[in-house]
Structure formats: structure tokens, C-alpha cells
Design a protein around this nucleic acid. Structure first.
Lengths: 218, 218
DNA sequence: ATGTAATTGATAACTATTATCATGTCAAGA
DNA sequence: TCTTGACATGATAATAGTTATCAATTACAT
């Protein structure tokens, strides 16, 4: 395991593409899009980074059925609905109450740590074009949603630590304050900067922005 | 596509092993067990038959997360709970009411055709041996359950047709009576014989047993 | 500005599954 | 009971999706 996560150009573009498309792309989907900006990027780099970034809590790895893994920029807890035909995956809102009804209590001696709900159906597009497009209908990654993404747990922790201190601080200070592994700090900070919640008045010094304070108070 | 499904020795043993183990084995799990009775069987045969048998409705293919497909002898509608650590899969009971709450209404314009609920947790064994077995804990297919399996749709149809006629009849008659593709009849009959719901008084002649009448009236 | 651990691109390796094909076998009808 | 041809099998190659390897490059704390 590494001690520090770096925000490389490749990583930045991958995050950017994932945030731009409102969908739940596979590694390969993203590769095709990232390639337009970084023609020399390797598919392995995309796979590697999606794995690393999801472990670091910057993005989410989806556990939906099907052979290919999918990734999600939206860190908020939510379930999914997928199309039988084109495999496209969309978000659904299941209220906490509904989920609680199902997950309350222990089952078969298991200690419950999660619940995965996946609706299966035919998406509007596939229903219409029901005859024509045979199996070819793999989703095109359009920009359907201007994602207002939620903070990940670690991002929130970092932001809270920055809110506490008056003076701009370095990543070591943040590591100490949050108790987080220093490995992920700098990467989280870069992500927070991109979102506009953090700024850097001097090299390696960071402070929270007004926008950052606002999102914390929500 | 084939016109008739045959009940080969390999298919019989695969079904037998799947019915004996109360678990939800992968193709490879089953291969290892079937091999004890048929040392010359090919892994491809196991994969092929699991696919064919699930298409014919004799068994069920599970769509749980994780990379490997799993199969189920129990044809009744039910959901699953899987262990984060050893990937083992068990059944859970979710009442129709609970599921209805979740699945009622349309979502995002999708036409709903299914709902998949998967609980994630740590199974009792993994919780206990939490430190020792590292990743090696892939389930051993024990005989934990004496499965009283439910009839598949097609099996029920065949059985109902047999219940209607007084005299033992051949598979063509059954095909005509049920309107099912003749392809699956003989295979379904063999399965029903194994379950004790059908018997054959003469070659290629079949009739329903007392037990068979009983299960129909449930 | 610098040293070094983290990351990259290229590619081999890997896991799970499906396809191919020559050979063998099941089962409906005679 | 025998025949016959469609169906199934075993061995193995091929495929899809992902992960591992490694020499060369690069981001970043100091």
C-alpha cells in the first residue's frame, strides 16, 4: 500500500469525465472518453485509478449485476435501476424508511452491513426502439445531469478540520487533525479544490472557502 | 436452438449434486463435486448444462453481485444474502408486501420487470474465524438442507396435463396438451420422475403419481 | 530546486465463461 | 428390440474483462 496519493493529470481527467457524464460508466466507457483528452493514456491506468479512487472514497464502485464494473461520481447513498436490454444504469430513490423495513433485524445469523436493491426494467428508449436496435444499444455517455455531488466521508472530515483552524495549514496538520491516513489527504484536497470548497493561498498550504463552509453547514 | 432436451447421465448427476447441496454453488464448485461421480466430465459440459437447464426452467441462475455466476435448485421466488468475506450466498425471506412497497409505481420511466434485493453481511462462520482464514474461506458445499423444492412453471404445466388424462401418455400428447415446445418435455418428465411426481408404467408412457397429485393441489 | 516514492504506459497474465468441432450417445418411431 | 439422426460430450481454443509486472517518468513535501 502507498503512503501518499498523488493527483496526477490522468487522475484529474478521469475524475472530470466521470463527473461530467451523468451516467454510471464502465472502465471501458471512461477510457474512450478520457482518450479524447489524453490520447496516450493506457487502459490499465483507467482501471487502476478507478480502483484506487474508489478505495480512497473519491468515487464509488457500483455493485450491480452484469459482468462489467461500473463507477459513480455521486457519493450519496442510493440504489439503482438497470435496463435488461442495454445494461444502462440509472439512480433511484428508495426512502430510508422503506429500506429499514427490509433490513431491520438479523437474517440467518448474518451481521448485516449493507443492502443492495436493484430494479430491473426496460428503459424508455429501449421500450420504444424495441425491435430495431438489437443488443447494440449500449448507452452513449451523454451529459444528462449537472451533478451536484455530495461529499464523501473523508472529504467531509478534511473540510471540517480546515474549518477549525484560522491559519492555512499543510497536509501533515490535516492528517493529525483528522486521524486519517496521510496517504489520501493530498488527493482529497485536490478534489476539494476542484469542487471549490478549498483553496491554496501558498504552496502546500490550504484553507476552506466560503462555499466550503456553506456545504458543511447543510 | 435444439428441438429436444435429452436427460443425459451428466445432466442427471449435475441436477442431483445441485439438489443435494443446500447452497448456491458456482459452475466450478459443482464441477468439483460432479467429478467425484463422473471423473471424465468436462468443465465445459457443466457450464453448458447449467446454462441450458436454467433456460429450460429446471434450475435458476442467480444474479448476485460478484464475478462468478451461481445456480439454485430452489425454483421458488426468493432473495439472497451474501457474505462479504467468503462470498457464500444464502436465502432470505422477504415478504411480498415489503417488496411491493418498493416496487410499486414506475421509476424514471422504466417498465419494471424485476427487483433484486441482496443483503450484504458477515456470515456467522466468518465472524468467528474473523482473523484466521484470510480469503481462503470459500464455502465448502455441505449438505445443510434437505431441499423440498418447488415446481417450475413448466413442470407444473406438464403435471397438470398428466393429471387430466386417465391413461398413460407419450411426450407428444403432453406437448399437444400443454402447448409447450416439445423440446423440453422429456427433460422435464425425467426431472419430475426423480422428484417422485411422475412414473413410467411402460417405455415412453408416463402418468402422474399420488405424490404428484398432492403437490398440484397445494 | 531536489530526491524519491508513487505513477505511468505497454503488455503479459489471469479468471470466468463461451465457442468450436470431431466423436459418441439418447430416445422416438419402426 | 433396433435404427437413425439430432443432440450432447470432451478437449481445447477463443474471448471478455480485469489485474499484475516492470522499466521509465513524474508529482510533491521539504
Amino acid at each position: 500500500m502507498t503512503a501518499t496519493l498523488r493527483m496526477t493529470h490522468q487522475r484529474e481527467i478521469i475524475l472530470q469525465e466521470l463527473s461530467r457524464c451523468g451516467t454510471h460508466p464502465t472502465a471501458d466507457d471512461l477510457y474512450e472518453h478520457v482518450r479524447k483528452q489524453l490520447p496516450r493514456i493506457s487502459l490499465a491506468t483507467v482501471y487502476r485509478n478507478l480502483e484506487i479512487l474508489s478505495e480512497a472514497g473519491l468515487i464509488k464502485k457500483l455493485e450491480v449485476s452484469g459482468r462489467r464494473k461500473r463507477f459513480d461520481w455521486d457519493l450519496a447513498e442510493h440504489n439503482h435501476i438497470s435496463c435488461m436490454k442495454c445494461q444502462r444504469v440509472d439512480n433511484i430513490d428508495t426512502t430510508a424508511a422503506q429500506v429499514d423495513t427490509l433490513s431491520s433485524g438479523r437474517h440467518k445469523g448474518y451481521t448485516l452491513t449493507g443492502l443492495r436493491i436493484e430494479f430491473i426494467g426496460l428503459c424508455p428508449t429501449c421500450r420504444l426502439h424495441s425491435e430495431e436496435h438489437k443488443e447494440k444499444g449500449e448507452q452513449t455517455m451523454g451529459c444528462r445531469k449537472s451533478t451536484t455531488s455530495t461529499l464523501g466521508d473523508q472529504q467531509r472530515q478534511v473540510l471540517e478540520a480546515l474549518a477549525q483552524t484560522a491559519t492555512p495549514c499543510g497536509s501533515k496538520d490535516i492528517a493529525a487533525a483528522t486521524g486519517l491516513e496521510s496517504k489520501q489527504i493530498s488527493c482529497q484536497i485536490t478534489a476539494l479544490k476542484k469542487k471549490g470548497y478549498v483553496e491554496s493561498p501558498a504552496r502546500c498550504r490550504y484553507e476552506i472557502t466560503e462555499q466550503g463552509k456553506q456545504i458543511l453547514s447543510q
